[in-house]
Design a protein around this nucleic acid. Structure first.
Lengths: 139, 139
DNA sequence: TTGCATATTCGACAATTGTCGTATAGTTTC
DNA sequence: GAAACTATACGACAATTGTCGAATATGCAA
């Protein structure tokens, strides 16, 4: 066959991406501005992060290596776009937490939330609404 | 005054502890066996983790430095105990995730759970029960 | 007391992450 | 075309994390 099938590992990355702190910060801006150049990102973050251009660029290059960003070259310019979706990144972050702190089980996490994170009446009401909406789902 | 008040930073650590992967693995065993020696932990983990004694010991020493473990010395033996609670560690992990992936807001996370993590009927039923139990809480 | 069996200490090493600086190469503008 | 910009390419460095091995110190048993 002419094109190579992505391997397990890369699919894993796609559906369960684990970003570092700096990567998250950059990724959020990419999702909002893609495709965009490293300079754009640096400027967009200028008021919150005092990062040198090279800091942003190096991090983005590493992200491209990891498969989190794609690069499209136009003449001398590199345009970056996301290679993973926001949902994939959120899923990765969420599952990592779930696995580490709750052995991967959702119910204990919920339990914890209610018992120790003190959901307010408002929040638990919202939650109830959400849960009801989910009632007719798969299973 | 005779005793020093813990500073913001150390309180931060206590109530919002952030453990690394290896630290989580070790901490879980400590919580179940404390007080215990490094050798105990290594043995307890022997079937799941192929770690040399020194690996476990080094990691635990570092954890003690960070204030996650306490050491009590008996003769030539060091007995380790947890210096942070399970709840604190879970809170730390949960909040880190919440901040990174959902800008710290709970409701969007719930939304995400239901929309993308496909809660099963069983799970959403459980959730509903939990939420109802939490109905009469603080606000 | 001599010595084995443990524990502890500590230094080491590679990989990852956060952060830059600088040397180059490609454009654009007089 | 040469100067002034702008982007890229890279190498670097410190701190953290995951992992050990080896040297040293201790305590118990024969």
């Amino acid at each position: 066959m002419a094109h190579s099938k992505p391997n397990k590992k890369s699919e894993q990355i796609k559906f369960n991406a684990e970003l570092t702190e700096a990567e998250w910060i950059i990724m959020k801006v990419v999702w909002e501005n893609e495709p965009c150049a490293a300079g754009n990102i640096q400027e967009a973050l200028a008021n919150s992060k005092d990062w040198a251009y090279s800091t942003v660029k190096t991090t983005m290059d590493r992200m491209a290596n990891k498969g989190f960003l794609k690069i499209q070259k136009i003449r001398n310019l590199q345009l970056f776009s996301s290679a993973i979706s926001e949902v994939d990144a959120k899923r990765g972050e969420f599952r990592k937490m779930l696995k580490r702190a709750f052995d991967g089980a959702l119910t204990p996490m919920m339990q914890f939330l209610i018992e120790h994170e003190g959901l307010s009446k408002t929040e638990s009401a919202q939650l109830r609404k959400l849960v009801n909406k989910a009632k007719n789902r798969k299973d």
